[in-house]
Design a protein around this nucleic acid. Sequence first.
RNA 1: GGCGCCGUAGCUCAAUUGGUUAGAGCACUGGACUGUCGAUCCAGAGGUUGCGGGUUCGAUUCCCGUCGGCGUCGCCA
Length: 590
Amino acid sequence: MLRTHTCGDLSEANIGESVTLCGWVDSYRDHGGGLFVDLRDRYGLTQVVFNPPDTSEELIELSKTLRTEYVIQVTGNVAARPEGMANKKMSTGAIELRCTDFKLLNKSKTPPVSPSATGKDLPGEDLRLKHRYLDLRRPEVQRTLLLRDRLIKGMRDYFADHNFADIETPVLGRSTPEGARDYLVPSRVHHGTFYALPQSPQLYKQILMIAGYDRYVQLARCFRDEDLRADRQPEFTQLDVEMSFVDGDDVIGVIDGLVAKLAKEHLGIDVPTPLPRMTYDEAMERFGHDAPDLRFGMELIDCSDLAPKSDFGVFKSVVEAGGHIRAINVKNGTKQYSRRGIDGLTEFVQGLGAKGLAWFRVEEDGKLGGAIAKFFSEELLEEFKERLGTEPGDLILFSADKFAGTCRILHALRTKIAKEMQLYEPDTMNFSWVVEFPMFDYDEDTKSWTAMHHPFTAPLEEHLELLKTDPGKCRAQAYDLVINGSEAGGGTVRIHDSEVQSQVFELLGIDEQTASERFGFLLDALQYGAPPHAGIALGVDRWVMLFAKLDNIRDCIAFPKTQKAGDLMTDAPGTVDAKQLKELAIKLDM
RNA sequence: GGCGCCGUAGCUCAAUUGGUUAGAGCACUGGACUGUCGAUCCAGAGGUUGCGGGUUCGAUUCCCGUCGGCGUCGCCA
């Protein structure tokens, strides 16, 4: 070992000891006669002093060549800092290391990304990704990755304690017809065929249930070749779980326990279980989104029955066309949003595809004011006031659109406004379940049904008949874990009955031959004594993001991809040799 | 693929309606200094204003295209 302690270890208890530290020069202060260095490693910062009499003239001369990010090994005496010189901002600020010997282990070029930069001095993200090894030295990033390590350790321990078996599944698999775009890997042995990287180990874990491994868990790397977002990477980690002889409540109960444990250990908060649940339909009614942020209210209010009574043309025509008029009441919103501010909100919703933004301002005397008020009779305005629960100072924002459109617009407004008006404490954590998702989405373009979750999801038992009569109303035994308005995990009870499975495939327009080609192995397996089973997958990267209070998933991953799915450090993806292409029988057509 | 924001010194930023030699802080180089802690003081060096084209007497500034980063919609069973 080149060191006896780390840069976070030493305190007044070590005064008088001779110790050796290794680390990077975080900063240096040259005083002519002597020199101070803040030495950094993963564990902290320690001040090293190169001063007579402890340090020889020769070593002081050498110390003057030190620059930031040089790597050194220092031996010295731990000493209390002189009277009044303690640094309360440092955890090791009571002591310092007085150098008696040191060795330059390595030099560094002037770093383009300074590990000690914070706030607005932080270099651009492209530069930090290019020099990721420097960015990863930043204490803030190290804290996040180490939190990630602890969360994963907590997950592994929890499932091990509950008798789950960790079983690995292949990365090279076969492309499935539905879902996200696959990442493909060409086969050298079978020209013209391709493996697909897994979007999730879904089918394998069901096979494991059929094979009798009744409690399975895996930290699985998943791949989806779709466009990126602040909370979405093409390559991500799922905590994948599957259980046999259980129903959805059992799976939810297991995850409730995990949430409570990790929230206690890493956030120091007591989360009461069972976590609250809400159906998908209720979530869309009240919040306009399937992952509602419950840290604040501002629920959606439907006014579709009142609105057409006005002379406001937009409201009338939208309702006549079968659309909805819904609103949110922004309490005390007129203070935050002046006329100019409302213009800003209008531009915001127009950017989301809305034609405009109708609004009321609640005046001091309680009356509803604003450009559209003149289209409303006194009586009707009273009805609106009652429906919306208005008080002076409130701002009412409307969306007039098809139901889905009002959901999209009002959810976006609700989220944006809550953030701008700081309607919740930044440290609040809210965990809940959204359950009973629709089985199917209707695709207007292709005039066909698609699976909302995946085609192996079981409908509610009482909705089995709806598969034949009214698929749009059919709800699934599906559940999503929602943390602060983010989907943090999702799962379903699986179909274990080949009869029901056939019905679902038929609805989805997957004929027998196609089904058999794509996942015949699962359909076969289901006929050999498949136990009832259910499972869930948690988005590990998102959990880290939420537990670390970050708003960007790249900061939770050591080597993330950019929005164009590239790696700025390695420059992946890259071209390959003609020889490699020839072996794979691939010709480029560009 | 659509929409929006951004790109100026190694880094973070500035530069008036389009106007002389593109500035500042940090970092870097040289010097001074015995207790600093974002040390301080003096001096210096450092620029293809992402790239290409256009408008103009003149472009960092306006226009078009392109590359890259970010956000968002589509997309993400």
